[in-house]
Amino acid sequence: MSADTRTDAGLPIRMLHDRVLVRQDGGEGERRSSAGIVIPATATIGRRLSWAVAVGVGPNVRSIVVGDRVLFDPDDRSEVELHGKEYVLLRERDVHAVAANRVESDGTGLYL
């Protein structure tokens, strides 16, 4: 499988090593709870993790493929802008969880 990918703007990108390029799902502004309560962006309780969609993965990434939703800490990220769109560059080890139909419950996810 090739590590080449194209961003939404069509720019070819080759991710290196264990890097994952993601696009965040939503803004960092206000959000709603499951009950419909509006939570302002200024309300912070502890560290809040963010979801994003993987749009590119490096050749050494083992647990993530393009299209997976990943959970990561927004404080530990590097942002990049490509053709006016914001992306986040992560290492695979900085991803806390992967949400995809292909994920099996018997895998350990440990690094050897």
Rank of each mutant, 00 (worst) to 15 (best):
N101H: 12
P59C: 06
A9Q: 08
E81A: 07
R93N: 11
V57H: 01
G27S: 14
G56W: 11
R48M: 09
V95M: 02
A3P: 09
R23E: 15
Q24H: 01
Y111D: 12
I64V: 15
S63A: 14
S50M: 10
D106L: 10
V20R: 07
T7C: 12
I37G: 00
A35T: 14
I64A: 13
I37H: 08
D4L: 11
V66G: 00
E79Y: 01
A9V: 05
A3N: 15
G56N: 07
A3C: 14
Q24M: 08
G27N: 14
R31M: 07
E104I: 08
R47K: 14
E30C: 01
H17A: 14
R6S: 04
V22I: 15
A3Q: 15
Q24P: 03
E81K: 06
D68L: 07
Y87V: 04
S78C: 06
A3L: 14
D8E: 09
D75G: 02
M15G: 05
R6L: 08
V95N: 04
A100Y: 01
V80L: 10
R6Q: 07
R32A: 11
V61L: 09
E81M: 11
V61K: 06
V57I: 15
A99R: 11
S105L: 13
R19H: 12
P74K: 07
V20N: 10
E92T: 06
A52N: 00
R77F: 00
Q24W: 00
Q24L: 05
D73Y: 04
D75P: 00
A3H: 15
L49I: 00
A43N: 03
E81G: 01
I39G: 01
A3F: 14
N101T: 14
G107N: 13
K85C: 02
V22G: 09
D73K: 05
S63R: 15
D68M: 05
R91F: 14
G107Y: 03
H83Y: 04
P12C: 04
A43Q: 12
V61P: 05
V95C: 06
I45H: 11
Y87K: 03
E86C: 03
E104A: 13
G109K: 03
H83T: 05
L49F: 15
H96K: 12
L110V: 10
T44H: 15
A100H: 09
F72G: 06
R6A: 08
A99S: 12
I13T: 10
H96V: 13
P59M: 07
G56C: 13
H83D: 12
E104N: 08
P59I: 07
V95S: 02
V80R: 05
G109P: 08
D68T: 10
L110W: 11
V65W: 01
S34W: 05
G29W: 02
V38H: 03
R102G: 06
A52H: 02
A99G: 01
R62F: 01
W51P: 00
P12A: 11
H96P: 00
Y111E: 14
